[in-house]
Design a protein around this nucleic acid. Structure first.
Length: 479
RNA sequence: GGCGACGUGGCCGAGUGGCUAGGCAACGGUCUGCAAAAUCGUGUACCCCGGUUCAAUUCCGGGCGUCGCCUCCA
């Protein structure tokens, strides 16, 4: 039974879709004015994994993630770089998609851009004005926060606290400092669209209300994003949509924790951010994905390269075992281990699902992968007959494909994994291996060891097996 | 100031009212010509102080500390 922590109720709830086995989810995407950082990576991976797991559980999932392509920061970027706005946005959308593909994140079913839904946003503003929830002032349109009784229900705030926070913008044009913009009058040289209130552009929150309602209809099942979006963004979305439609907006609200660097939130304004590209220059993208899943999605996650390298070693442990199975040598035993192999895997799947069902506890799920790996290593140590090895290989294929389908990891063959870090031409490496084996045959172990040590400095380990010498390459890390 | 989260062994990180999470690193044994990998073993983990309980790291109260939101932000 799948349980999900719902920000709205502040507790884990049993997940029940609105319509049978159909799940509609909307996740707030990125504002496209720069490369994605690892905070974006975390959020994307969290919701991709949720989506994948829901599909695995047999739900038909419709997944929407938007692009915010009209915004102050984009305008600023455009002015600074001298590039037209649509050039800036299309470039960063392309970069975004490349990064997401690298991280094995499934493309959304819908990836709407805000600028494609201007008409819907204007309609929504009109509706809110008609119903008395919004007003026009000097070419802007504002949402009348005090008119929506349930304002604050998601972020658990009351209006008086917000005012005493004294962070609310003082603005002569607004009737009440709490009110927020639905539509903004455009200044000169800013992108603008015709509206009943003159030339303008949408406020930030309205786009998600308009796009989610249009594409999914409301209420829909899951709305997600980073924790920082709870207030004001999601609170405002709720206010707009529920005021306009008079019904619930979304049923389950899921928010992921931040990525920190040295215990501090990573953010643009602090300047302490690392892009996905910075990381994938150093490690395989799968390592980043794996690393981000070793912490529960709601907890803060402290990033460092050392921890990333720990994850690399951990993933390598899994690939090593897969590699060992590929090259396992059978014995002549009559009795096979099929029953034992079967029970190891069925235990694994049971525990894996139990963990994932508990609010997508990927960290616990991953621990069960290692328990499985250990069991397999013990089987290999005690040797298996040919029949058992074949059976084990079949089981592992299914396992790998399940891990890929759910967690989005173990996408490679062991061979691909161990060759990807190879710093030397394979033909050259072959020569060294042959030379060393020649030395070994002549019992010239000193020379053989020299070659081994030399290759180790290049990050290449040699393994002498019954089937000959093979190699495993790993990245060389400064200690 | 208001609201909220968290504090687990050298490091990271799940979880639980009593039963070995897991990973990385370290040390010792086995295996190996030597290695690597693997495996076995080792380290008396739950911020402090009270309370509830037969039993608390886990529940309750208080304290200390760290962090987040309240402004654009995944």
């Amino acid at each position: 039974m799948l349980k999900i922590f719902n920000t709205m109720t502040n507790q884990k709830e049993i997940f029940t879709p609105i319509n049978d086995n159909e799940v509609k989810m909307y996740v707030c995407g990125v504002t496209v004015y720069d490369f994605c950082h690892i905070g974006h990576a975390r959020s994307s991976i969290v919701f991709d994994t949720i989506r994948r797991y829901l599909i695995y559980k047999g739900y038909r999932v419709t997944f929407v993630k938007n692009f915010t392509d009209v915004d102050d920061k984009i305008i600023k970027k455009s002015n600074e770089s001298g590039k037209p706005i649509d050039e800036v946005t299309s470039m960063f959308i392309k970069a975004h998609n490349e990064d997401m593909d690298k991280l094995n994140i499934l493309r959304p079913d819908y990836a709407p851009k805000a600028t494609e839904f201007i008409e819907e946003m204007i309609d929504l503003c009109k509706k809110l004005i008609e119903k008395g929830y919004a007003y026009e002032s000097n070419g802007d349109v504002y949402f009348k926060v005090r008119s929506f009784k349930e304002y604050g229900k998601l972020s658990k705030r009351d209006l008086e606290d917000l005012i005493s926070g004294a962070r609310v913008e003082v603005n002569e044009i607004k009737n009440d400092p709490l009110d927020f913009a639905l539509w903004k009058k455009s200044k000169e040289n800013e992108p603008s669209w015709d509206s009943p209130w003159g030339k303008g552009r949408p406020g930030w929150h309205i786009e998600c209300s308009a796009m989610s309602s249009k594409i999914l209809g409301i209420p829909f099942d899951i709305h997600g994003g980073g924790k920082d979006l709870i207030f004001p963004h999601h609170e405002n979305e709720i206010a707009q949509s529920e005021a306009a439609e008079g019904k619930e907006f979304a049923k389950y609200w899921i928010h992921n924790g931040f990525v920190n660097i040295d215990k501090e939130k990573m953010s643009k304004s602090l300047g302490n951010f690392l892009t996905i590209r910075d990381i994938t220059k150093e490690v395989d993208p799968e390592v980043l994905r794996f690393f981000l899943m070793t912490t529960h999605y709601r907890s803060p996650l402290d990033f460092s390269f050392d921890k990333l390298y720990d994850s690399e070693s951990a993933l390598e442990r899994i690939y090593t075992t897969l590699d060992e199975v590929d090259s396992a040598v059978p014995n002549n035993k009559k009795s096979d281990s099929k029953a034992e192999i079967h029970s190891i895997f069925s235990k694994f799947y049971k525990e894996f699902e139990y963990s994932m069902d508990d609010d997508f506890n990927t960290a616990a799920a991953i621990s069960h992968i290692f328990e499985l790996i250990k069991e397999i290593n013990i089987l290999l140590k005690n040797k298996l007959n040919e029949y058992s090895i074949t059976y084990l290989k079949e089981k592992l294929e299914t396992f790998k494909s399940t891990m890929n389908k759910t967690l989005g990891i173990l996408t490679k063959t062991p061979e691909e994994w161990f060759k990807s870090s190879l710093t030397m031409d394979e033909i050259e490496l072959k020569k060294y291996i042959d030379e060393r084996n020649e030395a070994r045959r002549n019992k010239n172990f000193q020379k053989a060891d020299e070659i081994r040590v030399f290759l180790q400095t290049k990050g290449i380990d040699l393994l002498d097996t019954i089937n000959g010498t093979k190699f495993r390459a790993r990245k060389i890390r400064e200690v």
